[in-house]
Design a protein around this nucleic acid. Structure first.
Length: 496
RNA sequence: GGAGGUGUAGCUCAGUUGGAAGAGCAGCUGACUCUUAAUCAGCGGGUCGGGGGUUCGAGCCCCUCCACCUCUACCA
């Protein structure tokens, strides 16, 4: 086996990813052997450090004794002295290893180290002639040998496939990747704190369910052996969160993974992180305030301001955000008489605008295609699109003044749907009718357990879902969801 | 699922009309006690994604398979 090295797998015979023997690995194995002979165990154990490198930097004092640990990133060998950079999860820090300081044997052994190795050093802090804070080592210990080289230091790791398959290399080699995920982590923490501060309880509901509900998507199926039956992974937590409303949780949220059995695209990953929020005794207008406040809070906390999305296409989140009805947006794009046109005339007009339409589609779907293909992607600044046709959304309540529409909004930013919110349907009889329309003749698919819960009385409530991966894409100006997820789904490189 | 693009050294990339596979970084050897992409001298390193074909000759042309990227389809 040659050269696989985690890069492209060999074609036709899809090899299981296995260690390749190459020159680099052989050399490092040789160095490891020599280090062991010099008394350095290649895979060490605990090393008590004075602090992370950022803490050592913050507490810098000339001649202060410190113990520092990290990964060797670069090594600048000057002969009888060596400068090298250590990196840990917090910072980069320079160390200096001088032959006179450390002794001939330890110095010779130090030269057997390779970039990528983890070491610990003990020594005193000083400032170099060029003004850089540095640890002058008087002893060092190997903590872990790296048998493979890290990606190159200038260009980092560019190969998209390798960046996703071996994300750890991307994280080591490309600081901006690490920075993105640090911000994602921070944003999620801020969302939780924001909701906790407003009295919401975070809950966990089943991911393995007998029946998929709460959205219209294909589920992943799985087999529960002990019960001898097929189960599905949830496509949404909605119906369980509503059961909790019945049970008396009047402010709840869940922030976790959903699974949808769909194709991959730059905006779709089959498992994605979703925030769902339900609050009793409010409605979609309560959700509007909540989501706006929440996104503003996250933007301020994580990015320090309300201009988001990076430099290429900055988006100003300063409120108030635009609000427009679905029908008005359609009329704005397709003409004021759109809803008075005959179905044929509307169809011709949509086709003239560049859409290709399925002949079987009723007027409602033709109109919705106009919205999805011609309008949504043009909404760059945050926009609440309200009052969708009732047929499209079976889990929401009708508008009080016009039952043809439901009392909902969809928050669209940068042409992407970020957060749908509803005044939730709490009438069990009406909910049953909607489900019956949805499932048609297949009565077995009716979620009787959920309807039973509703019959015990669900308080009126506002509910909302926020796609966290897409929210991060918008905040950070990334075009691909694969850049927003640590380990995005890829086709397998392994033999089944 | 469909269309297009891409795949060359560990990494980042060149490679002309089909005519002897290259550079930088990394690696190895040597020099060098304040470097910052250290510097200087020298040396190795290739299944050109896999398989098949055309040709005197293929990294380059053809077929096929694999992966990634983009568009598209599916997706409330």
């Amino acid at each position: 086996m040659l050269h696989v090295a985690g890069r492209r797998m060999r074609g036709g015979t899809r090899g299981v990813m296995e260690p390749s023997s190459n020159e680099y690995r052989e050399q490092r194995l040789e160095n490891m052997k020599k280090l062991a002979e010099a008394g350095q165990a290649p895979f060490g154990r605990v090393f008590e450090r004075s602090g992370r490198l950022a803490e050592i930097r913050a507490g810098f004092e000339e001649n202060k004794r410190v113990r520092a640990a990290g990964r060797l990133i670069t090594i600048r060998d000057m002969g009888k002295s060596v400068f090298a950079d250590l990196r840990d999860g917090s910072d980069r820090f320079q160390i200096y290893v001088g032959k006179k300081d450390i002794g001939d044997a330890a110095f010779a052994a130090f030269k057997l180290l390779d970039a990528g190795d983890h070491i610990g050093v003990e020594g005193s802090l000083f400032t170099t002639r060029t003004g850089e804070a540095t640890v002058r080592a008087d002893s060092w210990v190997l903590l872990a040998k790296a048998l493979r080289p890290l990606p190159e230091k200038w260009h980092g790791l560019q190969d998209t496939e390798q960046r996703y398959r071996q994300r750890y290399l991307d994280l080591v080699a490309n600081p901006e990747t690490r920075a993105f995920f640090d911000l994602r982590i921070r944003a999620i923490r801020e969302i939780r704190e924001f909701l906790h501060a407003r009295g919401f309880s975070e809950v966990e509901t089943p991911m393995i369910q007998a029946q998929a509900g709460g959205a219209a998507a294909q589920p992943f199926t799985t087999r529960y052996h002990a019960l001898n039956r097929d189960m599905v992974l949830r496509i949404a937590p909605e119906l369980y969160l509503k059961r909790l409303l019945v049970g008396g949780f009047d402010k709840v949220f869940e922030l976790n993974r959903n699974f949808r059995n769909e194709g991959l695209s730059k905006t779709h990953n089959p498992e994605f992180t979703m925030l769902e929020i339900y609050e009793a005794y409010t409605d979609v207008r309560g959700m509007k305030t909540l989501v706006q406040d929440m996104i503003l809070h996250v933007a301020r906390a994580v990015l320090g301001g309300l201009t988001v999305g990076g430099e290429e296409q900055p988006i100003d989140l300063t409120p108030p955000w635009r609000e427009a009805t679905y029908a008005d947006l359609i009329r704005e794009r397709m003409g004021q008489d759109w809803f008075e046109l005959t179905p044929d005339a509307a169809r011709r007009k949509a086709e003239a605008a560049g859409l290709s339409l399925d002949p079987a589609w009723p007027p409602l779907l033709v109109t919705h295609e106009v919205y999805e293909k011609l309008i949504e992607k043009t909404l760059i600044a945050p926009t609440f699109v309200t009052r969708f046709p009732a047929e499209l959304i079976p889990l929401a309540k009708r508008c009080e003044d016009d039952p043809a529409f439901v009392d909902v909004f969809e928050l669209v930013v940068r042409g992407q749907e970020v957060a749908p919110a509803y005044t939730e349907q709490n009438d069990p009889l009406e909910q049953r009718r909607q489900f019956e329309i949805q499932v048609g003749d297949d009565a077995e698919k009716l979620d009787e357990d959920f309807l039973l819960a509703l019959e015990h009385g669900m308080p009126p409530a506002g509910g909302m879902g926020v796609g966290i991966d897409r929210l991060m894409m918008i905040l950070m100006g990334r075009d691909s969801i694969r850049d927003a997820i640590l380990f995005p789904q890829l086709k397998s490189a392994r033999v089944p």
